Amino acid sequence: MSEPGFLRRPRRVAAVASVGALLTLAAACSSGGGSSSTSMSNPPAGAPAAGTTVATGTATVGGAQTTVLTAPDGHTLYFFTPDTASGQPTCTGSCAALWPPLTSATPSEASGVTGKLTVSATGGQVVYNGHPLYEYKPDSAAGQAKGEGVMGEWHAATPSLAAGANPAPASPSTSGGGYGSGGY
């Protein structure tokens, strides 16, 4: 005979899993400002990593090998042209689910990173020469730059990325893929 309550346990597990999935979906779909998301290269606890290092690597950008800024996991970092000139990110909520911000309490740079690293006032996002930095979820390995040119507003960050409101992209923009609409 089976133990009393045995048939109910799978239902409890399924219910808990369903609630967790709904909460995750709700968080990804919210578009409220000030919400924080963790980067793929940061701990899932939600707090910025203590010492994230921004480095350089090579990625194929617009068909050419280009030196780009990289997260600790080697993935290409991006900037979003609508972000404010004061270094405050505008990609939040559901936007940040696809474009996770690189966060750190005290970012540092590896050799080859010549710009100024700071942290945004909200959420602890790493900012390079005034540009908040993001990863792109579809980039599954180092050396990829699938986010380059998405919506004409996302571009691979390079060491030469200068301070300014809307810098020129790392390469000619490409269309396709991307985020869809709304949320930022």
Rank of each mutant, 00 (worst) to 15 (best):
Ala142Asn: 05
Ala15Met: 10
Thr174Ala: 10
Tyr134Trp: 02
Val61His: 13
Leu77Phe: 03
Lys137His: 07
Thr76Trp: 01
Val119Glu: 06
Ser160Lys: 08
Thr56Arg: 09
Gly183Ser: 12
Ser94Trp: 13
Gly177Ser: 06
Glu153Asn: 12
His75Gly: 03
Pro138Trp: 05
Pro48Ala: 07
Val68Asp: 07
Ala15Ile: 12
Asp73Arg: 00
Val68Phe: 08
Asp139Leu: 12
Pro101Gly: 08
Gly164Lys: 07
Pro89Ala: 14
Gly87Ala: 07
Gly32Val: 12
Leu25Asn: 00
Ser35Thr: 15
Lys137Thr: 14
Thr118His: 03
Ala170Met: 07
Cys29Asp: 06
Ala21Trp: 09
Ser175Asp: 11
Lys137Glu: 11
Ala21Gly: 07
Arg8Asn: 03
Val113Tyr: 05
Ser94Gly: 15
Ala96Ile: 15
Ser30Trp: 14
Ser175Tyr: 09
Pro169Glu: 05
Leu161Gly: 00
Thr81Ser: 11
Thr90Tyr: 15
Ser86Leu: 11
Ser181Gln: 10
Lys137Val: 15
Ala27Ile: 09
Thr103Asp: 10
Asp83Ile: 11
Thr122Gln: 03
Ser37Gln: 10
Thr67Gly: 11
Pro10Glu: 01
Gln125Met: 07
Ser111Phe: 06
Gly57Lys: 08
Thr106Pro: 01
Ala50Ser: 13
Gly62Tyr: 09
Glu3Gln: 04
Ala145Leu: 05
Ala170Val: 03
Ala71Ile: 02
Ser160Gly: 08
Ser94Leu: 13
Ala28Pro: 01
Cys95Asn: 08
Tyr179Glu: 04
Pro4Trp: 00
Gly164Met: 07
Ala27Leu: 12
Ala162His: 09
Thr84Leu: 15
Ala64Trp: 05
Gln88Met: 09
Gly115Val: 07
Thr24Ser: 13
Ala55Trp: 01
Gly93Phe: 14
Thr53Gly: 04
Thr92Ala: 15
Val119Trp: 00
Ser160Val: 06
Gln65Arg: 15
Thr52Val: 11
Ala97Asp: 07
Thr118Trp: 03
Lys146Trp: 00
Leu7Glu: 10
Gly152Arg: 13
Ala71Asn: 00
Gly130Met: 11
Ser18Ala: 12
Gly115Ser: 09
Ala55Tyr: 00
Ala26Gln: 03
